[in-house]
Design a protein around this nucleic acid. Structure first.
Length: 869
RNA sequence: GCCGGGGUGGCGAAAUUGGAAUACGCGCGAGACUUAGGAUCUCGUGGUCGAAAGACUGUGCGGGUUCAAAUCCCGCCCUCGGCACCA
């Protein structure tokens, strides 16, 4: 039976219709409601770069399923959206196209907001804000001042990471492991070191707590926690003081192997260590040290600290004393010692550290074995590499014969008692450098006064508004520095002339507390309305890309601790559960001559896939994250135009589980579209309308095909509910597909008796409700066609009828010695002995066990019988 | 080197607690409907052997535990990600 013209699935029409209804009725607006349990669902807010991409569609589709599902389950769901709006690209647009960053940003926001609405995501748009709004960043300036007062924000001169493309400083977290900028520039020359006066947040004060609380986040993926733990990099060891010869001064070192201190035969200093130059002064080594330090300074830091770089150094001409043995230890400057880890000085134990071993061999320095491995006798003269394992101490005075692990504790205590150092803990984590030499960011609220020094802008003078009239050239220092009317001010303390700080804050500062602000975006008495923040925080479910595993997620945890200490919030950790979704990937076409190609630029010939431009061989198949530069993007707008938002959402959710990378497939999208059309047709091709049909009551008893369809319906409710709860959206959708297939092939599909119609109605209604979090417009339309007056959003998520899913009969697998040999369908009511007897009665089984002794018969109820013989 | 994730059909994937390996979808094959099909519907689809019934085999590799292993244990290989001359 054909469909009437108006009964074809037309996504564009129904999507526009329902988006308007949702908006007109304000259906996603929420306020605090103590009657219902709250659920704060948050997806990482986007940077308004221009248009949304598939990564956004995937991220927000996942979030929307949960938001809609939780609402139907009776939760008071906060599902906000806003804009991470400060940052580099806006400034680059200004440089390239002469458009003001503010104009560019707000226009992009308008475009992207429309695109998000077009996808049908259920946000409470009343809470929307952009971090470049003065009403947002002024509170961030207040936080900065409070942190400054507590010593958590401080300025220091140091070597910092400099990105020549961004023309600004980067935090350590923003430098990738290959030494490039986190923004991923096409031709990144690599981050270099620059000595500058910079503002820092004292995240290192929180290293231990941030590490400790990694164990209190069971709702976070293990790999993210591992990355954070690695990044914090805790080492337990000791500090040891080595007195300088002919001086009262000491060189302090940090070591994790204080048990090997008796074997320390020389000392290595970082080239940047202040003692490097001062110790050699006046000695014959002075010139050599100067030259070495200069050479190291010029060398690229990445290269210098690479593991493969040969160890080299230079003698300073000075000596220190081993505090345990009093032995004279020559002091070297060495390329492998880092100034920013530990103390910048390393005691060298060549017998038990491979680097020191290589260094000692190169410069002819003495070796003393102090740890003897169990069952072996190490001799310094014959060693070819350092022994870094545990063992029994020798040549170690009072500690001889002691186990090296135990000796670490004893020696640390000895150091402490004798004023020579003691137990210490060292972290790899460095303070967060937040100064950026850029215009499009929140101004750092600081004034420099010749008389009073560094003075914070008083609270009453906030905000320090980012001036609008500024020339952005992309050359030189921060654009604000050239703006005299901004820079010139008076000192809030003495009234004398003052100059403003012209650096702006790292945009990661804005994203470190936006989730709190969503609880009270309109609040103007302070940054946060404690009452509302306490109601909503913490975020129950946070969803975003794995690329923020350290960056944003660590900063936010730090910021939350600071805000809690200051009494602005009352939570220890901001995000209870974290879901890190995978990337959206697509194959790239690459021509050896013309580089990356669009699919439209290649053609298939007999001799393989060729480049249309040069005719050369094109390599394909490699899956990479969608990016404009790789020419493998799919524009969501095109998808929505061609298939509708529901199909696009459906594909993202069905193709793979959320944590995994999603491999783009045009045919897969077709498949999703086909499924929705199939449901649509099923609905309209029925021989009888369903509007007037009443649903079945719980506990209704049925027989035959009616019973089995009802059973499938309720089993599907159970399965889909469980799958959504554990974020297995792909299997939830496949379960709904199974139900649809079952309805299609059910013999009662077109029967017109009352009960059949009610069973069919229940099955189809269930499909529509279960689909609603995934494809909301589609579901609304069919829901209405079923005769419902109210939006499907107002419907409660169904419960399954426990009676309906009960089976009368069950399929039992029969194994012989663990191998599948037969199956039988038997009534569930059968007892253990009965089932076993039935299994042994099977013709095939009898043949197989004939003449053999049956040793055991194992029964797994409702599953299988295994006959062992 | 250390830490973590992963390896299942031609492809995306499923198997929640040790109990039928490959659900669902894509692709492919056959058929139906049709003037036509790139629409739709039905059936088939891990491999080898076989006309078939069926047999053997099969979840990266090699062992082990168990009546029974994709799942647990031991040892490897590959791959992705993080950290790494970190003292």
């Amino acid at each position: 039976m054909g469909l009437a013209m108006d009964q074809h699935y037309r996504p564009k029409e129904i999507e526009e219709k329902w988006q308007k209804i949702w908006e007109d009725q304000n259906l996603f607006k929420v306020t605090e409601d103590l009657e219902r349990p709250k659920y704060y669902l948050l997806e990482m807010f986007p940077y308004p770069s221009g248009k949304i991409h598939m990564g956004h569609v995937r991220n927000y589709s996942i979030g929307d399923v949960i938001a809609r599902y939780k609402r139907m389950r009776g939760f008071n769901v906060l599902h906000p959206m806003g804009w991470d709006a400060f940052g580099m690209p806006a400034e680059n647009a200004a440089i390239e196209h002469g458009v003001h960053p503010a104009k560019w940003t707000y226009e992009n926001i308008r475009t992207m907001k429309n695109q998000l609405k077009r996808m049908g995501f259920s946000y409470d748009w009343d809470r929307e804000f952009a971090t470049c709004d003065v009403s947002y960043y002024k509170w961030e300036q207040l936080f900065f001042i409070k942190m400054f007062e507590k010593g958590l924000a401080y300025k220091k001169r140091s070597f910092v990471n400099w990105c020549e493309i961004c023309k600004t400083v980067l935090a350590n977290e923003q430098v990738m492991s290959d030494g490039t900028c986190w923004r991923g520039h096409a031709d990144d020359p690599g981050v270099t070191q620059k000595e500058l006066d910079q503002w820092f947040f004292k995240i290192t004060d929180y290293a231990e707590e941030l590490l400790k609380w990694c164990d209190q986040l069971p709702g976070w993926p293990e790999r993210v926690l591992t990355m954070q733990r690695n990044w914090i990099g805790k080492s337990v060891g000791a500090e040891i003081h080595f007195p300088l010869e002919h001086s009262k001064e000491v060189i302090k070192v940090f070591t994790t192997r204080q048990d090997t201190v008796f074997g320390a035969t020389f000392m290595s200093l970082a080239p940047e260590h202040p003692l490097a130059l001062s110790l050699s002064k006046g000695t014959a080594q002075e010139e050599a040290v100067k030259a070495f330090v200069e050479r190291m300074k010029r060398q690229d830091k990445m290269k210098r600290t690479a593991e493969t770089t040969e160890k080299e150094g230079v003698f300073t001409g000075a000596y220190c004393l081993n505090p345990m043995t009093k032995a004279r230890m020559p002091i070297f400057v060495a390329n492998f010692v880092l100034m920013d880890y530990g103390t910048g000085a390393v005691m060298a134990v060549p017998t038990h550290d491979q680097r020191d071993f290589e260094f000692a061999k190169k410069y002819g320095l003495p070796l003393i074995v102090v740890v003897q491995p169990e069952g072996q006798t190490l001799k310094a003269e014959t060693m070819t590499e350092a022994y870094e394992g545990e063992g029994i101490l020798i040549n170690s005075g009072p500690f001889n014969g002691m186990d090296s692990i135990k000796a670490r504790e004893r020696i640390a205590n000895y150091l402490e008692e004798n004023g020579l150092g003691g137990s210490r803990i060292s972290y790899r984590l460095r303070d967060w450098g937040i100064s950026r030499q850029r215009y499009w960011g929140a101004p750092i609220p600081i004034i420099y006064c010749e008389r009073c020094g560094t003075v914070p802008v008083p609270e009453k003078d906030l905000p320090v508004v980012l001036p609008f009239n500024v020339e952005i050239t992309g050359r030189g220092e921060s654009p604000l520095a050239g703006l005299e009317e901004f820079v010139k001010t008076s000192c809030p303390r003495c009234g004398g002339p003052g100059r403003r700080e012209t650096d702006t804050m790292d945009t990661f500062v804005e994203s470190s507390w936006y989730f709190d602000r969503f609880a009270c975006p309109d609040y103007d008495q302070g940054p946060l309305d404690r009452k509302r923040v306490d109601y909503w925080m913490p975020v129950d479910q946070y969803i975003g890309g794995i690329e923020h595993a350290i960056l944003h997620l660590l900063y936010s945890r730090f910021f939350t601790r600071v805000l809690k200490e200051m009494g602005w919030v009352n939570v220890e950790e901001p995000f209870t559960n974290l879901l890190t979704q995978g990337m959206v990937c697509k194959e790239v076409y690459e021509c050896s001559r013309d580089g990356y190609l669009f699919p439209s630029e290649v053609e298939e010939r007999e001799n393989g896939i060729r480049c249309q431009k040069c005719g050369g061989q094109v390599s394909i198949g490699r899956l990479e994250k969608m990016s404009k530069s790789k020419k493998n993007v799919v524009d969501p707008e095109y998808l929505v135009e061609k298939y509708g938002a529901d199909t696009a959402r459906m594909f993202c959710l069905f193709a793979s589980p959320p944590e995994k990378d999603l491999d783009w497939s045009d045919q897969g999208v077709e498949g999703s579209a086909r499924f929705l059309n199939r449901v649509w047709r099923l609905f309209y091709e029925l021989h009888h309308p369903l509007q007037a049909v009443k649903p079945l009551a719980f506990g209704t008893s049925l027989d035959g095909d009616q019973k089995s369809l009802r059973q499938k319906t309720h089993k599907t409710i159970k399965k889909v509910t469980e799958d959504i709860e554990r974020f297995h959206f792909n299997t939830a959708i496949s379960a709904i597909m199974e139900l649809v297939n079952e309805i299609y092939t059910s013999p009662i599909r077109d029967q017109t008796d009352e009960i059949s119609r009610r069973v069919i109605r229940e099955a189809i209604e269930t499909v529509v409700i279960l689909l609603s979090p995934f494809v909301p417009h589609f579901a609304e339309e069919l829901w209405e066609a079923l005769g419902n007056q109210q939006s499907i959003l107002k419907t409660r998520w169904p419960d399954y009828d426990p009676e309906a899913i009960l089976e009368d009969e069950v399929l039992i697998v029969i194994q012989v010695n663990g191998k599948l040999r037969d199956r039988m369908t038997i009534p569930v009511s059968y007892g253990e002995e009965e089932v076993k007897a039935w299994a042994l009665r099977s013709e095939r089984i009898r043949r197989l066990v004939e003449g053999k002794e049956i040793k055991r018969v194992i029964l797994v109820p409702k599953k299988l019988v295994n006959i062992v013989c």
